[in-house]
Design a protein around this nucleic acid. Structure first.
Lengths: 221, 221
DNA sequence: TGAATTTTTCAATATTTCTTCATTTTCCTT
DNA sequence: AAGGAAAATGAAGAAATATTGAAAAATTCA
């Protein structure tokens, strides 16, 4: 999705460290070397601002104030002034975090991601996709060519285990152990029975029979 | 408003510092002195968790993992282990911030407020709308086709959690953990009971039963 | 205390799971 | 290639289990 980060910082070394590290992490960077430029470069497309305190022309607190007056974008302050008074002043300006120099780029990235994670809307649940089949594990849905197929619990678990281990053959006993539990006392044929129903519902030859051994879902070639 | 903060910390001195400072700031505190207690004390009503790393029984990372598995509540880690490795480990567990000891209570409070401010801002509107259903979270009202439906506390929470996570299946145990708390000793059937009443009041098939698994509110297509 | 809510309990109902068995397919032996 | 044995499939009915609805008991709150 490529989020834009505005970095307001006059120290060239730090600019280049951030450039290397954050661009590798997949962010798009916008640099500004002083407070005026920082305010000028800020716009709605910016997802997060990294702001130094000691800056030419307008200091970080000033930039923060201006940006805050028109946007609720996350702001991280980055500075050599590690004393408490400055930190408190930053938080009063409604920044999101304060990182004293020297800092670890890794930690900065983590903090950024912690903040951005909160912002991101779509939290897709866990999914298993195989050919034209889609299993939504959190929602307990199964779709075949986009239309939902309603499975019973046993059918769902059978499909899930086999899809999670594509290419692996499961003997009936293995499936029994994993789904019914190791101490369950049921006929081994129960597996066949559910598999038959599953196959009928899925209407497609996903599950192969390995005669004399068990069942398998082939790996996608 | 009076937000609840869960503090998982075994050091009595720190407990008492936080007690003084945060209670004065208007927060309601819940203390836990070890990991197990921390997990037990956590529930939906908690707005933020302050978590020590070195804890008896289960360490902070473990507690974080358990809480994260069922909730997106903000978590701040608080610890004597200031090294980078531990910090990174914390962020990998999706915490929101990491504060090394010794820490300034003022700074902690600022960080808490920065995080909670975000949370409140994103809950802005405080409304959940789904089809012809409208939940007003601040006012605790629910409207179905414009006419108000009066829900009890438990009914309200059930609907809220499920609407906040449309498309996700909740097992009864998950709902129990989130609404009643992990250590509540009640029959699992209580969930069915409230759900039945909720369904009757809402007069519309919003909540689906996933037999053998739990309940789900489908995503709007 | 009284009303509302929450929790427990239980019977009725619905659905799934399991067993059984006849049928079909596959594989092996001759 | 034919026959027979083993394995897999399909289908139907029985058993087991989960869910619902309702109502009684317990608890909470005003």
């Amino acid at each position: 999705m490529n989020e834009k980060i505005l970095i307001v910082e006059d120290d060239f070394d730090i600019q280049s460290i951030l450039k290397n590290y954050l661009e590798d992490a997949g962010y798009q960077l916008v640099f500004a070397a002083d407070g005026v430029e920082g305010i000028a470069r800020f716009n709605e497309k910016i997802s997060l601002v990294i702001l130094d305190i000691m800056l030419p022309k307008i200091d970080g607190f000033g930039v923060c104030e201006v940006i805050r007056s028109k946007s609720d974008v996350p702001i991280i302050m980055l500075t050599a002034l590690a004393d408490e008074k400055n930190q408190l002043k930053g938080y009063a300006g409604k920044i999101d975090d304060y990182i004293p120099k020297p800092f670890s780029a890794k930690i900065l990235l983590c903090k950024m991601e912690a903040i951005l994670r909160r912002r991101r809307a779509s939290d897709e649940g866990e999914q298993l996709i195989y050919k034209n089949l889609k299993m939504d594990l959190t929602g307990h849905h199964v779709f075949c060519d986009g239309t939902e197929v309603v499975l019973t619990q046993k059918e769902f678990e059978l499909l899930k285990i086999m899809l999670e281990n594509k290419g692996k053959v499961f003997t009936r006993q293995m499936l029994l152990d994993r789904i019914w539990g190791i101490d369950a006392y049921v006929e081994e044929r129960i597996v066949d029975s559910h598999l038959k129903n599953l196959r009928k519902k899925l209407s497609g030859s996903y599950i192969k029979t390995i005669r004399g051994v068990g069942y398998r879902i082939d790996e996608e070639k």
